[in-house]
């Protein structure tokens, strides 16, 4: 059942303390900043956040971490030259970090959405990020068993939604959105525009509405100069 919310605060009103939350975005591209800021206002604590990065600058995910709401982050690339809020929490021992190679992160989320119980991947084999994990030699090559990441909520950003929740994205802002949408009990999407059902070409829909539970329109994103900080 799809709910169209009046505002971001209403959209995140079901996210309580201790929730596991997938947050889309690669750096600032595709990061659902308005939903994250609403979650910050809601005040939920002890969150586990799954996102590629651990926040840039001082807004969005960085602000949520800076406010001490995130107990644990599962991500691939936390450290950047503008990740000061995460860096401070990490060095103070106030946030737990589970570091995951980026492709394993995406596939762990995808596999949760696809009902897979785990998968063997060559990524990370023989490295410290595979320490303690089950391994297997398949076809003469080493593989590591990785587990799915299922969440209570996914907060993602898309370009447009129709009234049944079908989504289209914009350029590299798509990134983790489609896999995260499939892997949460409740997926909440912020979009720039909502269109009538039938206005999106069915051939071009990227995320079918079956994966979407809540929509909120936050207006078109401001085209601003992204940070030019280096990072993987």
């Amino acid at each position: 059942m799809l709910t169209v919310h009046d505002n971001a605060d209403q959209a995140v009103s079901g996210i309580n303390d201790d929730a596991i939350v997938l947050i889309g975005g690669f750096g600032k591209a595709g990061q659902p900043v308005e939903l994250i800021e609403a979650l910050l206002r809601r005040g939920s604590r002890n969150l586990t956040v799954v996102s590629n990065n651990a926040g840039n600058g001082t807004d969005g995910l960085a602000a949520l971490i800076g406010a001490g709401r995130v107990a644990k982050i599962i991500c691939s690339f936390p450290r950047q030259s503008d990740s000061k809020l995460f860096d401070a929490k990490y060095r103070a021992g106030e946030i737990e970090l589970e570091l995951v190679p980026q492709g394993n992160l995406a596939e762990r989320i995808r596999s949760a959405g696809a009902g897979i119980g785990g998968f063997f991947t060559p990524t990370g084999y023989g490295t410290i990020l595979a320490a303690g994990k089950e391994t297997r030699i398949i076809g003469g090559r080493g593989f590591v068993l990785e587990s799915p990441i299922r969440a209570d909520f996914a907060l993602i950003k898309a370009l447009k939604a129709d009234a049944v929740g079908n989504l289209v994205y914009r350029k590299t802002a798509r990134n983790f959105g489609p896999v995260m949408a499939s892997a949460a009990t409740c997926t909440i999407v912020q979009v720039s525009e909502m269109v009538e059902t039938g206005d999106l070409d069915p051939e071009n829909i990227v995320t079918p509405g079956i994966f979407v539970n809540g929509i909120v329109v936050v207006g078109p994103s401001v085209r601003s100069k992204p940070s030019t900080e280096p990072g993987l």
Binding site: F26, K28, A29, A106, R174, P178, T228
Partner: peptide, 23 residues
């Protein structure tokens, strides 16, 4: 801001470009 590379530097698209999700 929606078109960046792995280093989060703004880039451009060439004819024949395609976009896809992380998995």
């Amino acid at each position: 801001e929606d078109l960046i590379n792995a280093g989060k530097i703004p880039v451009t698209e060439l004819p024949g470009a395609s976009y896809f999700h992380h998995a």
